[in-house]
Design a protein around this nucleic acid. Structure first.
Length: 938
RNA sequence: AGGCACGUAGCUCAGUGGGAGAGCACUACCUUGACACGGUAGGGGUCGGCGGUUCAAUCCCGCCCGUGCCUACCA
């Protein structure tokens, strides 16, 4: 049997196994397999993307679910893919083009530019996929999809055409969010609001035909040039007489009507009068509709003032225009005052440019009819959210949903399947390029220049990836999917829209459960960003990185100086290589529901140590499994195995069953952290800390068959006696089962170890395709657990006494048993105590055999056993230690005694609780009595 | 403005209507044939504050303070 290296090195192990799994085709799910399906479709990351902790988190959690279900014999299918990310990708390629060739996309033309984007995608789009593989993601790569694939494009056209036919897609001239940097319309969701301190300008508008002034308050004085009314509250006594009149618009030669509008105007706010700019403000647009006002755009699509503005302002940017308007107003004495004001500024999600509400002809999806079934599906429980709190957020958004602007003035994406007639101008919407206009038969057709919002194709993802609109075997088998696992930040972007489209086109929910994970942030709770220099790259955690490399990477990413300084401060030693397993385990352990995940490298380190601990437990096991015959052990266990098991054996097997149950239940409830903790505790605190130590004597059993070969050197190998055989079997079983329980979390190390554990003939080739452990209730052994609990208590007390009183290892202990039954059991278990205390002499005596000589030391937990030892110890230290314990016990006695003396407690508390407190009180008193007796002897 | 989370050991986080936990850090001791990426023992917390419900509250309820996020048309 080859000996394993002393320390576990993940880099030597991980990628070897990943390749092996791929070669064996373990990740592939057959749509025709006669097994219950379990499907997850990946929330497709952007092709432009590079792996970040958010990806690492979803990859980990989804892989855990998929590996777990696969091991439970489900037909588990995890469909991967990437998203074409219209704006982001186009931006990246445009920037490169500008930098390398000094050209814009317009210089190249649409066709050539798209060719370049595809080239870029072919070259760089695979990066994130390769990075997911590093983490061990067991995706069905044969089914990988890209949102611009031919099949998905067919799905997009089909969906568009059908929705158009149903009147759910329409084209209209409306106010939309316009990014002048990206030169495209954006949906409401793509605008991010940021609270900033701006100004509130009070501007006087002269009232036509009078000397009066009507003062309005605005945060955007430059839009004044596009005003088409002034609104006051219809019941405001200050102003209502002006309604119906007109005001002269400063800096222009226009006059605008004064209207009464109770919806827009809040009498308490500002001056009580509002300038109305329907062409550049969503509220004002509504007022414009209500009062049939003119709608003027004064900005063009590049963010400059157009010909609708007075000549003096044309060509200025919005910022320049603001400065000039304010200056000109001041010069004319029309600027009444300026005060600081908080406002929410909308910025483009991609480029942070301030978005401009702009009148524009765009395509929209009518959302309300689609939202209704999506609301019903959640209300009726067809789809549920985990954590449940998201249900409310989802419902609120769905119930207040607005139409979705889906056209984008980009080139990279699904081109809108609408053709405009050169003769009549009407659009013809069709699946394939039409030969003639559907309205007038004209043949001069030009396709819409625009593409669809990337999220439109994403919304079809759960079924477009499975072959829709064709009725495929895959769709029948894998739709609806089992779980949508993603971050809560895209609840609306993805989840909500997938729900609507899934229900609309498939008539079934796209997923039964939506698990929304939290955001990964840094140790201080701040969002990771290159600007702050607090990014932790998952690959750096896996492979490790020096400080120099970290700094270099940040510099290449054009990070600011401060970020570099922060990196130096945060990672003075760089980042140690911890392996994918440790990273995955950390993310799972921190993935408690409903809060941000603050990734602390210290946690990763701790779990890297955990991997090493498991590794060394395996080393120990393998060193002691010489001569072990898994088949023989299995046969023995099947026959009269229970007879052969020692207390320690029965205990660890019992703990193992409980752990299996805990892990399984936790995963069912998406409590990844609970599952991780349960395995951690089992492996470290139970298997390593206790069982391995307890089993050591048995593994040395040299009786029977061992005797026969007592040649020199045989002792070192250990014997082959029945105790040893049994301990070997239990050790192997515990380790093997623990590996299977841990496999979804730490796939690599568990495979590496599992491969080397002797297994019965016919065992699977890989841990990946073994069965996930289920708890065997027959192996749960309450009695063994209670007895071992007592052993642990005594062991701990002995160690504690030795440390506390600085006793030597050879000081003999006596344990006082409360009754004959306890004395008998403890006498049996004495060897275990000795195994754990380096063979300390221990005698079990009846408590009644007092008076004892020596010092009494009570066990730390609750079974109130007392230990007696004699030997040299500092008398004063002993007395002080005893007094401290007495004080602590006295406090507890008073507390518990108080409860029991309380009539209300006795009358109303449940019987068990009362009994428990009685027991505690008695125990307290007993321990105090023993300590006092001990103190008295000094 | 509304909504949702969160506030527990020095740090990162679990947890529960009835005796406060883990990892890291800290202290002391230990190179024991699995593991110093280790072992043993230990120190450290008014469970954000104030009220309420309850026999009993860190946990349930209300208010307040602080932190974060989301939604929103107050110019």
């Amino acid at each position: 049997m080859t000996e394993l290296p002393k320390a576990y090195d993940p880099t030597q192990v991980e990628q070897r196994w990943y390749r092996a799994w791929i070669e064996q085709g373990y990740f592939h799910a057959d749509a025709a397999a006669p097994k219950a399906p379990y499907t997850i479709v990946i929330p497709p990351p952007n092709v432009t993307g590079s792996l970040h902790m958010g990806h690492a988190l979803f990859a980990t959690l989804q892989d855990i679910l998929v590996r777990w279900r696969r091991m439970q014999a489900y037909n588990a299918m995890w469909l991967p893919g990437t998203d074409h990310a219209g704006i982001a990708t186009q931006m990246v390629v445009e920037r490169t083009l500008q930098r390398e060739e000094g050209k814009s996309r317009h210089d190249l033309g649409r066709e050539e530019f798209l060719k370049r984007v595809w080239q870029w995608k072919e070259k760089n789009g695979g990066r994130i996929v390769e990075q997911l593989k590093v983490l061990g993601a067991s995706c069905d790569w044969e089914r990988a999809r890209f949102t611009l694939d031919e099949g998905l494009s067919v799905a997009v056209r089909e969906a568009f055409v059908r929705l158009h036919e149903e009147g759910l897609i329409y084209r209209a001239r409306r106010l939309i969010n316009w990014c002048s940097r990206c030169r495209t319309a954006l949906s409401d969701l793509e605008v991010e609001h940021e609270d900033v301190t701006g100004s509130l300008w009070h501007i006087a508008y002269p009232v036509e035909g009078s000397d009066a002034m009507l003062t309005v308050a605005t945060t955007r004085p430059e839009t004044l040039l596009g005003d088409t009314a002034v609104a006051v509250h219809p019941e405001d006594d200050r102003f209502k007489h002006l309604i119906g009149g007109r005001a002269r618009l400063p800096l222009t030669d226009r006059t605008v009507p004064i209207v009464g509008d109770a919806v827009l105007v809040d009498r308490e706010f500002g001056t009580g009068a509002v300038k109305v700019t329907p062409g550049h403000d969503f509220n004002d647009f509504e007022v414009g509709v209500r009062h049939r006002l003119d709608m003027i755009s004064v900005f063009d699509l590049t963010g400059r003032l157009n010909d609708n503005a007075p000549a003096a302002y044309r060509g200025l940017t919005v910022e320049e225009a603001r400065a000039k308007v304010v200056a000109d107003l001041e010069a004319k004495g029309l600027l009444v005052k300026v005060e600081p004001h908080q406002l929410a500024l909308g910025r483009c999600q991609r480029c942070e440019t301030v978005v401009e509400p702009t009148l524009s002809l765009q395509w929209f999806v009518k959302m309300q009819p689609l939202a209704e079934p999506a609301i019903e599906a959640v209300e009726s429980g067809k789809t549920r959210f985990v954590p449940e709190m998201w249900t409310k957020t989802y419902m609120h958004w769905m119930r207040n949903i607005k139409d979705w602007c889906i056209s984008r003035q980009l080139w990279w994406g699904h081109r809108i399947p609408a053709w405009y007639c050169g003769t009549c101008g009407e659009p013809t919407v069709a699946r394939e390029t039409p030969a003639a206009c559907a309205h007038c038969g004209g043949t001069q057709l030009t396709q819409d220049e625009d593409v669809l919002d990337t999220w439109f194709s994403s919304s079809l993802w759960p079924f477009s990836t499975l072959g829709w609109p064709k009725e495929t075997r895959e769709l029948r088998t894998f739709y609806p999917t089992s779980v949508m696992e993603t971050g809560y930040d895209i609840l609306f972007f993805w989840v909500a829209r997938m729900m609507m489209m899934g229900l609309h086109f498939m008539k079934k929910v796209p997923f039964r459960t939506v698990f929304l994970h939290a955001m990964v942030v840094d140790e201080k709770g701040e969002k990771m960003s290159k600007v702050k220099g607090n990014v932790i790259d998952p690959l750096d955690v896996v492979y490790g990185s020096t400080l120099d490399a970290l700094v270099k990477k940040a510099e290449e990413g054009a990070a600011p100086k401060q970020a570099i300084a922060n990196i130096k401060k945060q990672f003075p030693e760089g980042i140690p290589a911890s392996g994918a397993d440790a990273l995955r385990f950390t993310l799972a352990a921190l993935a408690a529901q409903g809060r941000n995940i603050r990734l602390a490298l210290g946690r990763v380190e701790g779990y890297r140590h955990f991997a090493n601990k498991l590794w060394n437990a395996a080393r120990f096991a393998l060193m002691n499994l010489e001569g072990f015959d898994a088949d023989r052990f299995a046969d023995e266990q099947a026959a009269d195995g229970r007879e052969l098991l020692s207390l320690a054996d029965r205990w660890i097997l019992s703990r193992l069953q409980r752990t299996a149950k805990e892990v399984d239940e936790a995963l069912e409830a998406f409590k990844f952290n609970d599952a991780a903790q349960a395995i951690y505790r089992f492996v470290w605190s139970e298997l390593c800390d206790w069982y391995i130590e307890l089993a050591k004597p048995a593994l040395q059993d040299k009786s029977e068959e061992g005797e026969a070969q007592s040649a020199p050197g045989a002792a070192r190998l250990g014997g082959l006696g029945p105790q040893r055989r049994t301990a070997q079997g239990v050790l192997a079983t515990s380790l093997e089962t623990a590996c299977r329980l841990l496999h979804p979390f730490m796939p690599f190390i568990t495979e590496e170890i599992w491969q080397q554990i002797p297994k019965p003939l016919g065992a699977p080739q890989s841990i990946m395709i073994t069965m996930f452990p289920t708890a065997d209730p027959g192996l749960i052994d309450e009695a063994a657990e209670a007895r071992l609990d007592e052993v642990q208590d005594i062991v701990t007390a002995m160690r504690n006494a030795r440390m506390e009183y600085e006793l030597g290892n050879d000081v003999p202990f006596r344990v006082l048993a409360a009754n004959e039954e306890q004395r008998r059991l403890l006498d049996e278990d004495k060897a275990l105590v000795q195994a754990m205390t380096r063979g300390s002499a221990l005698q079990v005596v009846p408590a009644s055999s007092e008076p004892q000589e020596g010092v009494v030391h009570v066990t730390p937990r609750r079974n109130s056993l007392a230990l007696v030892f004699s030997g040299q110890a500092d008398r004063e230290a002993l007395v002080a230690a005893i007094d401290k314990k007495l004080a602590k016990l006295d406090k507890e006695r008073a507390q518990v005694g108080g409860k029991l003396a309380n009539e209300a407690f006795m009358a109303k508390a449940p019987e068990e609780v009362v009994a428990e407190n009685r027991r505690r009180l008695a125990e307290c008193e007993e321990r105090m009595e023993k300590l006092r007796a001990s103190r008295a002897t000094m």
